[in-house]
Design a protein around this nucleic acid. Sequence first.
DNA 1: GGACGTGTTGAATCGCCCA
DNA 2: ATGGGCGATTCAACACGTC
Lengths: 367, 367
Amino acid sequence: MGDSSQEESALVKKNVVHLGECVEIMNSLPEKSVDVIFADPPYNLQLAGELTRPDNSKVDAVNNDWDKFDSFRAYDEFTWNWLKAARRVLKENGTLWVIGSYHNIYRVGALLQNLDYWMLNDVIWRKSNPMPNFRGRRFTNAHETMIWVAKSKTSKYTFNYESMKALNDDIQMRSDWLLPICNGGERLKNSEGDKAHPTQKPESLLHRVILSSTKPGDVILDPFFGTGTTGAVAKKLGRQFIGIEQDQEYVKIATKRISQVKQLDDINLVSIEQKREQPRIPFGTLIERGLLEPGTTLYGPKKKYSAKVRADGSLISNEFQGSIHKVGAMVQGASACNGWTYWHMDAEGREVCIDVLRQQVRAEMTN
Amino acid sequence: MGDSSQEESALVKKNVVHLGECVEIMNSLPEKSVDVIFADPPYNLQLAGELTRPDNSKVDAVNNDWDKFDSFRAYDEFTWNWLKAARRVLKENGTLWVIGSYHNIYRVGALLQNLDYWMLNDVIWRKSNPMPNFRGRRFTNAHETMIWVAKSKTSKYTFNYESMKALNDDIQMRSDWLLPICNGGERLKNSEGDKAHPTQKPESLLHRVILSSTKPGDVILDPFFGTGTTGAVAKKLGRQFIGIEQDQEYVKIATKRISQVKQLDDINLVSIEQKREQPRIPFGTLIERGLLEPGTTLYGPKKKYSAKVRADGSLISNEFQGSIHKVGAMVQGASACNGWTYWHMDAEGREVCIDVLRQQVRAEMTN
DNA sequence: GGACGTGTTGAATCGCCCA
DNA sequence: ATGGGCGATTCAACACGTC
């Protein structure tokens, strides 16, 4: 640290994208010169075969050479190497973010611990619009995981607690963040109109990462720069960045993109209002939480129809089974039905609409 | 497998809690005898009194002069051992769930992959009422992570897709679950009125785990049984369980707790019929049974294409002949097609999907 | 020019049975 | 073991064209 490091630092080109392999370039940077590292490494997806949607259209999967590894061992070695190089350039009080999915994040997390990084949080990016599970064979893979670590247990790292609280309607920011995936106008396209990069991250995600863990003027390094979301948001928020990317095409795209970004006039005014989320309460929640016993009989208006509740939140009437909405529609011969207002239960002699129970759960969930 | 395994199985006491160390007890069970394992392993090393160093010397948590590397090594070895024993007792088509936090889950996940378990999902339990971060130095740690794995890539594991969809108001269940932590009347207290166990899991969480990945009658093993939430919910939902717990006090508490649980009256209430398990009805059956006359014209959507039914259950269009699926695919130029939902017929002026006829046959067959 | 309907798309480890 | 046939399967957001 100190003078010599600052002198060296001055020689490093900031706010540009360096073309090349990230370990090599990181090793060419002065040690302990970077405040925060954000890394979006290859996920090692191990995809095989093709996947089609129910309408027979083909899913455009990640099929790039940079995501292909021969084995977990090879992926671990790759990961170890870049984490080690990252550690060298990171300041003692710096922090590092890595994003990944279940394919790779457990390996990354274990290696971070082995390298004496100190875990501060794991943060779940909940996607508001994930790709569905087309075959119905698993749960919809609706999130990605970010691990946030300090260089050591004793690091005096930056965490802008008040900014995060302000961003979250004056409630502490939680470790699960609901944000949309990157599409629409933000998604960069190539000359053919296809997506320029298969895994471009949304700016809203980087916005929260950078606001939470850096100060204005801090240097943010991204060793897998891609189309440069980290650089674009860093510039916008008055931070500096060092981008490393080994694909010349991506370097070109990112450079152009960032040149069009304007730094915000007053960073202190930055705030993306966050509406407090009104959680959706599915009917099944009432059963899981014991507010309604499986086997309970529900009635339609005037007790014309009845159906029984099952443990999975489906209803069963004489002929039909399905959700409260579906069975409600079917007994009436209607095309649709709001089951919440249609079905009632006996509660101490009185008919109670099941929507009352939902309001009860919602009150508990938002308190 | 087969007879000998069944004989052995008969000797294993089910629906009871076994007192002892989980690896030892799992190794005493017959191999490939368990459908699902749910594990909530300790991650506070102080709790894991049995930890040994790789050289088999005891880790002394009180005089902990061992460094961090040793501690991760010890935790990995502990984890490796129980995952290995779990793998032996798990059926080929069985699945395993592990729950943990950022302290341990990355080590567990990496070891699962190293042991050739095949990841199906990681599932985020979002706590609706997490403990706040009192010092305001990090994000509120508001979730825990569950990893769901099959024994191998080729396992034919159980996933009750329709049940999960029903539970979630007819939308695919996502990988992030919002559920409250265990407190109130559900939280077991000791004689002093303190919580009986530090990490008692909510029954709602196990309800969803068990409904999603087991059939009624399946055997669920929990090697870190604690106060027996897994057993309580398994019994309620008509599943069997094998509990293993090394603390005599917990065994007592869990046993008493489960004895007070009642199984739901009707096992049929427990799970809606999964479409994939319905009997297969060949298209030709409709003709044989007189529900469809040979020579009838069927139409694709918007009557864009048509084809005629022949007596042997094949279709013939202008150019193609073959099964309802093949002809459906060929007229569209698609690689595949579900003929049951593609083809429609005129019935008294209305378009009727031929799948309706299949449902009629199914109803007749089950009555 | 808004309402509505149609079409496209996104880091995805996405069948099973039987001959 | 392996290949072919049966037949199961999608949510939210955005773009675009029509009325």
